[in-house]
Design a protein around this nucleic acid. Structure first.
Lengths: 269, 269
DNA sequence: TAGTGGTCTAGACCACTCC
DNA sequence: GAGTGGTCTAGACCACTAG
């Protein structure tokens, strides 16, 4: 269990090899999950330091008593998570911890309010159809080209108190039914979730001082720090909606997370 | 290529099946990657709407001309990304787009400054050893128990101008050599990256108003909105370091990302 | 050029869950 | 009970790359 120096093979043998004849796993986990957790622990505990060389797949598979495919699946996942670096010919090494980067999750507003034990409610403040303006580009990232857009403003409430101010543009050409939809109680985000199929979104998070109008709506002092989240949503290369969410800084924080890599996939809004 | 209704099977056949006898793939991609992109496009374009039922694995494998294992790998990845929901017996469906959640990446400070084309520099402002205080818990999440800690404050500069104010605690019992380390030029984060093996961190992001002392150091007006990132780092259940990063709101924003699921893995600091 | 990871296959068994 | 996904295997070929 001694920690080998850089570029040497870890002398530590897998600490928890499955019982040989056992066809049943100890817990609800699968074999490759078990191996992943095992090796991840060795790395995080410092027993396998950065730069140290792992045995080749075939040998590890033998040690753990699994096939090479299973071992490959486990090592591949650890590589995707950023703990291992795998190169042909030179083999597998414990990765050098990367930059001080991380990943933070943006939660759904309603879920967040409810998970804090408070009652959620949405209140529509304003709503109108109007031609697309120059300033819309700020929210959408590109000029909507003068076509008609639906503009909304509303307040997300927690136990009746302002939690988040939402300003939103919707493209009625894509989100059919938006014109006829009454958003007095149902938040536009929740409605779009139902009305529009899968989509892709991009996000931006900043800190801003509350302007006078915003501060009044959020019941804050003017200039109080707020967290601003801007989300632009597309479906099949057409813009669907752009939204600006303003949270009082005292009220809101993005929850912690892990992750050396930002991960992939896509989202909606 | 017609879009089936909810809970019906997609009538669309896979649009891009590989040529039969071809043993070579069209591009640098693998077969399962090709399938993943293919099906993801069908979902994001709306041709396979949320709730629609996919053919069973064996049939899809046949259509794509691959083995069931390969098909399983592709569908499994799409399920991990949140596009598909798979249940035994009832089969695979296109997922209902979830909450308005997403994932935002926190970049490394030095990388971020440099990628914007500016020169990076770190400037140490203060440094002292002192007993752990009650207030340290704010940064570390738990009382360090009165043991001696290393307290640091420094400024990250972009082209000589303040970019980020860093306040940090280091546990010298874990980060050996921290006492003897001169942080006048090398940022503590960068040093820890080298000195401490893999670790796990948790994060918190908030918006705060700059206090007088902070504003002066960052060359801001008092009360200006700043993005505050607090990171706590552990290695093998011992606290290593806690850091508070303060970015001027006008200067900094968290970069956009995708992702229906927050992903997993772990990070360091 | 030899060693390593990356991928794919055909077949098998199992666990879960809906009917 | 039957159908589905989840997993595992043994073997094979390929691509990349370091020596």
């Amino acid at each position: 269990m001694s920690a080998p120096g850089r570029t040497t093979r870890p002398a530590a043998s897998p600490p928890s090899v499955l019982p040989e004849g056992s066809t049943r796993l100890p817990e609800g986990s699968t074999r490759h999950d078990h191996i992943v957790e095992d090796i991840r622990a060795l790395i995080v505990d410092g027993r396998w330091p950065p730069g140290s060389q792992l045995p080749v797949e075939t040998e590890l598979a033998e040690r753990y008593g699994v096939s090479r495919m299973t071992m490959n699946k486990a090592l591949g996942q650890l590589a995707r998570e950023g703990f291992l670096v795998r190169r042909k010919k030179s083999g597998t090494q414990v990765a050098q911890p990367r930059a001080e980067s991380a990943v933070v999750a943006i939660a759904d507003i309603r879920d967040e309010v409810r998970s804090s034990g408070r009652a959620y409610r949405f209140q529509l403040l304003a709503r109108r159809m109007r031609p697309g303006k120059e300033e819309d580009a700020r929210l959408l990232g590109g000029p909507p080209g003068g076509a008609e857009v639906l503009w909304l403003q509303g307040l997300h409430l927690a136990d009746g108190r302002p939690f988040c101010l939402e300003t939103r543009l919707i493209n009625p050409a894509v989100a059919e039914g938006a014109k006829g939809q009454d958003f007095t109680a149902l938040a536009p985000g929740a409605w779009l979730l139902e009305a529009v199929p899968w989509s892709v979104a991009s996000h931006r998070v900043r800190a801003v001082n509350a302007a006078a109008a915003e501060a009044k709506l959020l019941e804050l002092a003017v200039g109080e720090a707020c967290l601003e989240i801007v989300r632009r949503t597309q479906v099949a290369s057409a813009w669907v909606t752009g939204v600006r969410l303003l949270y009082p800084g005292s009220e809101h924080q993005l929850v912690a997370n892990f992750g050396p890599d930002a991960g992939e996939a896509s989202t909606r809004g």
